[in-house]
């Protein structure tokens, strides 16, 4: 079943704020084996010019993926989750994420198209502080494999 192309241009406003904690940053850095002191040591982070410890470059996957999963679960979109794979992902950092950030995420469906029997869906998320300061823009392309694929 093709995706409902009328979803292109839809925007999903933030539903809550996500507060970045020092503990979650360390947990994530440990999980990816990145030993940088700037994730762990507030003094090292302030010496480098940051307000607090900063987060690894893909840390915001935590809230990005949750938002994507909420969108693709909408039955009206017609997406078969069991056939979906992550095609690509990018992060554009307007500034590094740091502990204490309270972030809100607005998601947009930028593109839907079909090619070679597969459906493609591009989701963008604009992530900003509660005060509206832009922090990061993420883009993900999701691929729904065709029945024959």
């Amino acid at each position: 079943m093709p995706l409902d192309a009328s979803f292109v241009g839809r925007t999903y406003p933030p539903t809550s704020s996500y507060e970045v904690s020092r503990e979650k940053i360390v947990e994530f850095a440990d999980a990816i084996g990145d030993g940088s002191a700037l994730y762990r040591d507030p003094e090292a982070a302030t010496a480098a010019g940051y307000p607090d410890v900063i987060a690894p470059p893909t840390f915001l996957t935590i809230i990005n993926l949750a938002a994507i999963n909420a969108i693709v679960a909408d039955p009206e979109l017609g997406l078969d989750y069991s056939r979906m794979v992550h095609g690509d992902q990018s992060f554009t950092h307007h500034r590094p994420v740091h502990a204490g950030d309270r972030l809100r995420l607005t998601t947009h469906i930028d593109e839907i198209f079909a090619r070679a029997g597969n459906d493609f869906l591009t989701v963008r998320a604009d992530i900003a502080t509660e005060d509206g300061e832009p922090v990061c823009t993420t883009r993900a392309q999701l691929v729904v494999r065709g029945e024959a694929g």
Binding site: A48, P57, G87, R139
Partner: peptide, 21 residues
């Protein structure tokens, strides 16, 4: 990303990062 972080010494200098799976 670790490759970049280790090289730069400061992962805050990574402005954009994208991949295809």
């Amino acid at each position: 990303g670790r490759l970049l972080s280790d090289w730069l010494g400061d992962p805050g200098r990574i402005a954009e990062y994208g991949v295809r799976f």
